[in-house]
Amino acid sequence: MSDVVICASNLCVEVQSKKILKHVSFTVHRGEILALLGGNGAGKSTTIKTFLGLLTPTSGSATLAGVNVHQSPAIVREKVAYLPESVMLYGHLTAVENIRYFLSLSGKPKTDADIIESLKRVALQESAWHTVLNGYSKGMRQKTAIALALLREAPILFLDEPTSGLDPVAIDEFNRLVTQLAEQGSTILMVTHDVYGACHVADRIGLLREGEIVGMFDAPDHGNIDSETVHNAFIEGVVA
């Protein structure tokens, strides 16, 4: 894990004149999973949106594979798959149609067989494949979005509260999937306030508080990060 793929350097972001990120710096290496933990308003989603090019930093830089996303926005389309907190797919389309449509927009079309395979992989029940998303539960939508992210075959994944709304079985499946992707070389930045989930899946955890990184926890070799330590730090941070 020597290649830096995701790099935040002294990143400062203001939204409506309010400082959301204050000199945030971190790196994520190839095949690594970094989880940013924090309470509401800590700046987790802002960090991801900045890397996606949806927000512009007031100072500092956000780079992907050495490319500044705000100077070369095309890097996002080429290398990133994004799983938002509220799954933003079309309610009038079926799971297959949604995935086919978004893949065609990103210039990476796939066959229906590939799409079905991906839906199977995320364990979306077959009866839902050709049903419009308006009738889906949040978990089913989440799975569709994960299937889309997988099909993007993007080397970088941004996951915003990825397990929110999933049942325990689906969370377990998801965690296994994410770990598998990292093992295959994907670089993953996820933001969450699920301490135990993050400790289970991440290689490192950064603790965000009021727009600043206040702690970084590494996983020991072949083991999980100690969730109690992180939990205590998180609670202290949030309370403080």
Binding site: R77, P84, L89, S106, G107
Partner: peptide
């Protein structure tokens, strides 16, 4: 309103 605008932008649209 559906939030798909940001998602479309991330797809490079």
């Amino acid at each position: 309103e559906a939030g798909t605008l940001d998602f479309l932008k991330v797809q490079g649209v």
